[in-house]
Simulated scan of single mutants.
Amino acid sequence: MEKGYIQVYTGPGKGKTTAALGQALRAVGHDMEVCIVYFYKMPEKWDYKGFSLLENLGVEIHGFAKKHPDFFESIGGGKARKETLRGLEMIEKIFDEKSFDMIILDEVIIAVRDGYIEEKELLGLLDKKPEETELVLTGRGATESLKQRADLVSDIRETKHHFNKGVERRKGIEY
């Protein structure tokens, strides 16, 4: 690609990661190189088949702060801050050393929302994005500055959800 854009999937509704993984699948289908860096996911516990399937298709995947944000809140935010900063360092290294057509930063917006990454740190990272790389960011609570900076913003809102009727997460649908 000559120019890669910045996409943001945010809002309180379900489907932000799903949308980003759909972007990854589409890109891989067009022989593009894709990398996913995720925060606050526990793939070994929640069995994220989407990640392992994409990895089998050649997508490079890295995870940081691999527990739910509530866990870090309960033990104090220092460890989450260190982990998310390690993630930012990894992303900068990827920008410098590897050539990806698309990089997905899954739940990075939550790290900003919860104060583990400062907004200016994330915006500074966006300044370092290679021109030709498509960058996709997900997570609830995107700041106005981030929304202004992005080229595409999808604010995903829940109108109706079966969780509100007591339905638990379903294998193959929510994870």
Results as ranks from 00 to 15, higher is better:
30 H>Q: 15
173 I>G: 04
171 K>A: 08
91 I>F: 03
157 R>N: 13
84 T>S: 11
130 P>C: 03
91 I>S: 08
54 L>P: 04
40 Y>S: 06
104 I>L: 08
62 H>D: 08
77 G>W: 09
175 Y>W: 12
166 G>M: 03
109 I>N: 09
32 M>G: 13
93 K>S: 15
147 K>I: 15
48 Y>D: 11
51 F>W: 10
106 D>M: 09
82 K>A: 14
74 S>G: 03
154 S>T: 15
121 E>S: 14
91 I>L: 03
96 D>P: 00
44 E>R: 13
145 S>W: 02
138 T>D: 07
127 D>N: 14
113 R>Q: 09
32 M>H: 11
17 T>P: 01
120 K>L: 06
106 D>L: 12
102 M>V: 15
39 F>G: 03
154 S>R: 01
153 V>Y: 06
88 L>P: 00
85 L>V: 09
71 F>L: 02
70 D>L: 10
122 L>D: 02
57 L>S: 05
28 V>N: 04
11 G>E: 07
158 E>Q: 14
39 F>H: 06
97 E>M: 10
112 V>N: 02
15 G>E: 04
23 Q>D: 13
46 W>C: 06
87 G>D: 10
65 A>E: 01
126 L>I: 15
141 G>Y: 03
21 L>Q: 11
87 G>P: 07
71 F>M: 02
73 E>D: 09
120 K>H: 14
152 L>D: 04
54 L>I: 06
39 F>L: 15
137 L>K: 10
146 L>D: 03
31 D>A: 15
42 M>C: 11
102 M>N: 04
164 N>P: 00
88 L>D: 01
66 K>N: 12
163 F>E: 00
162 H>F: 15
29 G>D: 09
63 G>E: 08
52 S>G: 00
107 E>V: 11
125 L>I: 10
64 F>Y: 14
111 A>E: 07
116 Y>M: 14
23 Q>L: 15
34 V>R: 05
76 G>D: 06
104 I>W: 01
162 H>P: 02
110 I>R: 02
93 K>D: 15
102 M>E: 07
103 I>Y: 00
113 R>S: 04
17 T>I: 03
50 G>Y: 00
11 G>N: 06
66 K>D: 02
64 F>C: 12
82 K>F: 05
1 M>K: 09
106 D>H: 07
112 V>T: 07
3 K>L: 14
110 I>K: 03
105 L>M: 13
32 M>V: 01
90 M>G: 00
71 F>N: 00
13 G>Y: 06
106 D>I: 06
168 E>F: 01
148 Q>A: 11
93 K>L: 13
41 K>E: 08
8 V>I: 15
36 I>W: 12
99 S>W: 04
125 L>D: 06
152 L>V: 14
36 I>D: 11
29 G>F: 12
112 V>P: 05
113 R>M: 09
75 I>Q: 10
24 A>P: 12
107 E>I: 13
115 G>H: 10
163 F>A: 01
138 T>A: 11
140 R>S: 11
105 L>S: 04
64 F>E: 07
149 R>M: 14
66 K>W: 00
4 G>F: 01
84 T>W: 02
40 Y>P: 02
57 L>T: 00
175 Y>R: 08
154 S>A: 12
89 E>T: 11
138 T>C: 08
175 Y>Q: 05
148 Q>S: 12
118 E>R: 15
64 F>L: 12
58 G>V: 07
69 P>T: 11
12 P>M: 08
158 E>F: 01
165 K>P: 00
85 L>P: 00
